[in-house]
């Protein structure tokens, strides 16, 4: 229980830091703190594989990506007054009510099984045990998630070479459009016109 309380306090502190820091970098770093505490909590919940994935993928890869983007956009000051100043107190009050209601519901939870026997069935949540579930009962989600990764990769690539609307060069050259649909007409064709 002592471990849980310490971790819970750290997680909540990190979460509050995430939403209250003005600077994007501090926000992201607070979230990293919360994610790491959650990873430790996963260990106490007998989910060893998830704990390591949480550290490597979430706190590692995803948050580094966030920090990279924050640096790239040079997000030093989050300027600008809130256009709807009344939202903040209302949202905070609503959030407290929501948290209280949800926590109250949480304590209505009646454990379906004896906790000791249920925990034993998890086999510690080791990669072997998780892998067995993933490749038997959970095969369809495991395969389907590959589509998700594919669309994420293609989507992210296509977002960076979007075309500006109403490009004169494009309109004049679209008659003899190249036979390669991926060729970047917006950048290559004006050069052709000049030549």
């Amino acid at each position: 229980m002592v471990v849980f309380v310490i971790l819970a306090v750290l997680a909540i502190a990190g979460a509050i830091g995430t939403i209250s820091f003005k600077s994007g970098i501090y926000s992201a770093l607070s979230l990293v703190g919360t994610l790491l505490t959650l990873a430790m909590m996963y260990v106490t919940l007998h989910a060893q594989f998830l704990a390591s994935v949480q550290v490597m993928v979430y706190a590692g890869a995803i948050m580094v990506l966030f920090l990279f983007v924050i640096m790239l956009l040079n997000e030093s000051q989050m300027s600008g007054a809130d256009p709807l100043p009344w939202v903040q107190p209302v949202a905070i009050a609503g959030g407290i009510v929501l948290a209280a209601a949800l926590a109250f519901t949480a304590f209505q939870f009646k454990a379906p099984k004896n906790l000791e026997t249920a925990t034993a069935a998890l086999q510690g949540g080791t990669p072997g045990a998780i892998g067995e579930t993933l490749f038997t009962k959970f095969l369809l989600p495991f395969e389907a998630v590959s589509i998700l990764l594919l669309i994420a990769a293609i989507g992210a690539v296509s977002l960076v070479h979007r075309q500006p609307a109403h490009n004169e060069a494009l309109e004049t050259t679209s008659e003899h459009a190249t036979d390669n649909a991926y060729s970047d007409e917006t950048s290559s064709n004006p050069a052709k016109v000049v030549a």
Binding site: F138, P141, A144, I147, L148, S158, L159, R162, P164, A165
Partner: peptide, 29 residues
């Protein structure tokens, strides 16, 4: 007929449409 598969379908659809709706380099898109 499984909540997780359903969720993946939901996300694939959503991610695709997010990209499609910001496809043009106009302020509105």
């Amino acid at each position: 007929h499984d909540l997780i598969v359903l969720l993946i379908g939901f996300e694939v659809m959503s991610l695709g449409v997010y990209v499609l709706s910001s496809f043009q380099e106009t302020a509105k898109s």
